[in-house]
């Protein structure tokens, strides 16, 4: 913090800080206000009969649905299933993705050979592989985790490989002047300088993994938020669909924040 010589803040500085704080509060107030206004509007329009609450549901009914889900204990089952599958797909995706990226960094030949395959696999909508995955690993949790892995894997590989390759060549040259082996160069120079790319890819992956899990749960599942959404749609319980979608958004936001927190703890911004 800039201070003048007596250690007290100058009036100009105080004015600047005050204005900045006011602006921060204004933005926060508008963010919350907008949310409350939208929910209130939704409720009022549904009560007035302007929108059909059978199709679009309404906040009070969503609230009641949550109450029921909690009362029967179902909510935790579905919530935990989706979170568990997402984390499993996410961790596997990161592990295999980083592993493959290391292999491709290590061998330029392997990287050149696999380039067209990576390009095609990257642009292929992985959900199209759904039937193949189900036949391969069976309909169940495994298929869902596999789907999450399929969606996040190639992105991780490309993101991490890009990070490894952006390592300052002069830093690598410096390490070579000390007789560094390739493993040493990777451990001490390339990997630490790719931490930014790693966290970037973690942030993308947690979202992609959730996409994979929901898609998987749409195809095969007996539990999970994706299952609730599909089930609700099939039996025309749109309250259930809306209630699940809102929980899903909260889950997605929390998981992203979790990764962001992890990055903060690792001291990388």
């Amino acid at each position: 913090m800039e201070r003048n010589e007596t250690g007290a803040l100058s009036p100009q500085r105080r004015e600047y800080l005050r204005r900045r704080e006011r602006r921060r509060r204004q933005i926060l107030a508008w963010q919350w206000g907008l949310l409350i206004a939208l929910v209130a509007l939704w409720e009022l329009l549904a009560r007035a009969g302007v929108i059909d609450s059978f199709i679009l549901s309404q906040p009070s009914r969503v609230w009641r649905t949550w109450g029921n889900l909690i009362a029967t204990g179902e909510l935790w089952l579905h919530l935990w299933t989706t979170v568990y599958e997402t984390l499993a797909g996410f961790l596997l995706g990161v592990l295999f993705g980083v592993g493959l990226a290391i292999l491709l960094w290590w061998s330029d030949f392997v990287a050149k050979v696999s380039e067209p395959y990576l390009v095609v696999l990257n642009s292929l909508p992985k959900i199209a592989l759904g039937p193949v995955i189900i036949i391969l690993v069976g309909a169940g949790t495994k298929a869902i985790v596999f789907m999450a892995l399929a969606i996040s894997l190639i992105v991780t590989v490309l993101e991490m490989l890009g990070g490894f390759r952006r390592t300052d060549p002069d830093a690598i040259r410096m390490a070579r002047t000390f007789g560094a082996t390739k493993a040493q160069i990777f451990r001490k120079i390339v990997f630490p300088s790719s931490l930014g790319a790693l966290f970037g890819s973690l942030k993308i992956n947690i979202g992609l993994s959730l996409v994979g899990v929901i898609a998987g749960e749409f195809l095969v599942s007996k539990a999970g938020l994706g299952y609730l959404i599909v089930y609700g749609g099939q039996v025309f319980k749109l309250d259930l669909v809306m209630a699940s979608v809102i929980i899903l958004s909260a889950v997605a936001a929390l998981m992203y924040q979790g990764v962001a927190l992890l990055q903060k703890l690792a001291g990388h911004h």
Partner: peptide, 17 residues
Amino acid sequence: VDPRIGYMLQKDNLLEW
């Protein structure tokens, strides 16, 4: 690369972390 020879490059290449 010989341990008896040290080599300094144009940039200091200190590792920021």
